[in-house]
Amino acid sequence: MAEPHARQQKPKRSPKRVGGWREIVVARAELIAAQLEATRVDGEAWRTTKASVDKHLDAAREAANRKQRLTGLRDWLTGAYITSAWAHLHNAEVLMVSVVSKEDLTAGRHAAIALVEQTFSKQDPRCVEARRQLIDDWPAAGDPERPGLTERAAYRTALQWGFAASDEQYSRVRSFRNMLLFSALFMLLLALGLGWLGTVKPDLISLCFTNIASGGAEAQSCPAGASGPGRWDIFLVELLGLLGGSLSAMVAIRGMRGTSTPYGVPVALALLKLPAGALVSLSGLLLLGGEFFPGLSGLDSPQQIVAYALVLGYAQQLVTRLVDRQANTVLDRVPSAEPSGREQAPTSPPPPPPATTTPPEQRQPPADELAPAGAA
């Protein structure tokens, strides 16, 4: 009698992860684990290192697979799980220096130098010392005894310096992202509060312009088209300013570059422009109504008022472009495999200096020409 087929075991399904950085963390953890297994030797030192590396890799995987339920928003703002995942990965890579082969150390020292030079200035003593130990004083390939403990310690120290500075830069990026989001939220609440105030007391903040009609009588032009301040004037102006801000954000995307960080700074910048457009539009019309700009206070139709509101909403770019520059500065300091934007493109060599010509030698006249006339 034939034996029944054994029930095939279903493969274990990997948990669903939201966010590309989670997949990167898990993939790098698997790579480090495979590299560690390739260095297996029978010894107490290797087993101790393996236990420590496995502990950090498990912690990194746990942070990447963390479920976001009750503490999701708090973790997203503080970046606790992102910081934990990358910190444990960095610790595992530092511990791997003790067991990797000499060939891997020799091949990877340039990457360690690049990490240090990206996070510190080249004049920093740590950068200078790391370059001296890992480049200038690195042993030749034919030396069987080196790189030894001294070189491994220098390599490990350089990685620790680079990873610590890199984590600080990522923390600055997260803090800057949070400031952008909180500023956008505050301006949104302020715009909504002013709009609600306009619906309750329309005469308190008037966006109407007084003009002289053809018969000499005074007439008011309001955003909503009424003959006096209306309940929806402020909301209408802010909505058009919001539209102008969104158009400005769409145009600004052309100059934005993506970022490899898990923090959406470009998205936060785009969100900031929306309530900024609403508030700038409202503030600009109030300044025009108060004749702050001479010659620009005579808006004699609702169409002109709403057109100015749209243009002023787009003009918020004049205010937020300073924030865009600061964002680019913060992102440029994050270590990346791409060339830094602060590096200047190679320029053509300077033209050679003009050739110096030797002045012609003065011809000495004969002695008879020097003699005065009549001396013969």
Rank of each mutant, 00 (worst) to 15 (best):
V330Y: 09
L282K: 05
A337H: 02
V306A: 03
T356F: 07
A278R: 07
P349D: 00
V323M: 10
P354A: 12
G295Y: 08
G289W: 08
L296I: 02
Q316D: 11
L310M: 03
R321A: 12
R342E: 08
V323Y: 10
V251W: 08
S281N: 02
T357K: 11
P339N: 01
P275I: 02
L274K: 13
S246W: 10
V267N: 02
P353D: 08
L322Y: 14
Q317T: 14
R333W: 05
V306P: 04
S260F: 03
P335R: 07
G313D: 06
L318A: 13
L247M: 13
F293K: 02
V265R: 03
G313Q: 02
A327C: 07
I305W: 01
S246P: 05
M256Q: 14
P360I: 07
T261D: 02
L288A: 08
K273I: 06
S297P: 04
D324Q: 13
R257H: 13
L299V: 07
V323I: 15
G289V: 05
S348G: 00
P302I: 05
K273V: 10
P335W: 00
P360S: 07
S336H: 06
P352T: 03
T358K: 05
A337E: 00
P359T: 09
P350T: 00
A252Q: 13
V280C: 08
E343R: 15
P335M: 06
A252H: 14
P354F: 14
V330I: 15
V265H: 02
P353C: 04
A270Y: 11
P262Q: 01
L274P: 07
G284Q: 09
P262L: 04
P349F: 04
L299H: 04
V251D: 10
G295L: 01
P339I: 12
L282V: 04
P339D: 10
S348I: 03
P266I: 00
I253V: 14
A270G: 12
Q317R: 15
Q303M: 08
